[in-house]
């Protein structure tokens, strides 16, 4: 896989997506062009029905567009079959969902191990990598806890550890703070910011301006198209404000 520095991590050209509803095509995305360079921290905003979730699903290789091209890290995504897409999701993308998608009655470390299981990593290495990922999100002391024994913020951090464990170049977060209270939300967002500083490319979807404020770049969508795509000028101020309120993650 060519990883020349000049190529953006995400390169979408003329992406359209139509859903068939009663024979009439409903266009969720219309000719969207979207690029994300490596190391960027992008927030995608928009009202419900603006097409941001559809864009997210396409970015995450969970779906195929009606037309258009998508290169992820220089690789033409839609040339491969569903197995190929599964491999791309496994190696290049880490997902964080808005619902707390952890396996119940399964320990934190085993939840984090899951992507490694599908990558065919051996058990000992798997455990080691999972522990490291949990330490990275500040949960090194709660390896054997089950989701029900963890707070919402801690559960979301387990999910982030799971997204990070394969060390993917891209982290996709769909309303990552949707089910969290505002204080825990800040905690989780600070973590994303920290990861962004460490070089992970983060794309998150949110409808909350407070959350989007943590990003370096804010994309606003409406009616299946990108309406604005601007650097976040208030970023530093917001970050400082957030960090001032933070309790350091344990």
């Amino acid at each position: 896989m060519p990883e020349s520095a000049g190529v953006p991590l995400i390169e979408m050209r003329g992406i359209s997506k139509a859903y068939q509803t009663g024979g009439v095509p409903l266009w969720a995305l219309r000719q969207v062009d979207f690029e994300v360079p490596r190391g960027d921290f992008v927030a995608i905003m928009g009202a419900s029905g603006s097409g941001k979730s559809t864009l997210m699903n396409l970015l995450g290789c969970l779906d195929r567009p009606t037309s258009g091209r998508y290169r992820l890290a220089g690789r033409d995504v839609y040339r491969t079959d569903s197995n190929g897409l599964a491999t791309i999701r496994n190696r290049y993308i880490g997902f964080v969902f808005h619902t707390l998608n952890l396996l119940a009655r399964t320990s934190a470390v085993e939840n984090v191990e899951l992507p490694l299981v599908y990558a065919g990593v051996r058990a000992r290495t798997r455990h080691q990598l999972a522990v490291e990922a949990l330490q990275r999100v500040g949960l090194g002391a709660r390896l054997q806890h089950h989701p029900s024994q963890l707070s919402g913020g801690q559960q979301q951090r387990v999910a982030i550890a799971r997204a990070l464990v394969m060390r993917p170049p891209l982290l996709l977060a769909d309303e990552p703070t949707g089910n969290l209270d505002s204080r825990t939300s800040l905690e989780v967002m600070a973590l994303f910011q920290e990861l962004g500083r460490q070089g992970v490319t983060v794309v998150l979807v949110t409808h909350e301006p407070d959350i989007a404020a943590f990003a370096r770049r804010i994309v606003v969508m409406r009616d299946g198209a990108i309406r604005s795509d601007l650097p976040n000028v208030s970023k530093d101020a917001a970050a400082m404000q957030a960090e001032g309120q933070l309790v350091e993650p344990r």
């Binding site: 995450g60 599964a86 491999t87 969902f97 998608n101 396996l103 599908y118």
Partner: peptide
């Protein structure tokens, strides 16, 4: 949901 999650993190249909 679990199946969806497993697919998202890289489980192949097989």
């Amino acid at each position: 949901r679990e199946i969806g999650l497993r697919m998202a993190i890289g489980a192949k249909p097989l």
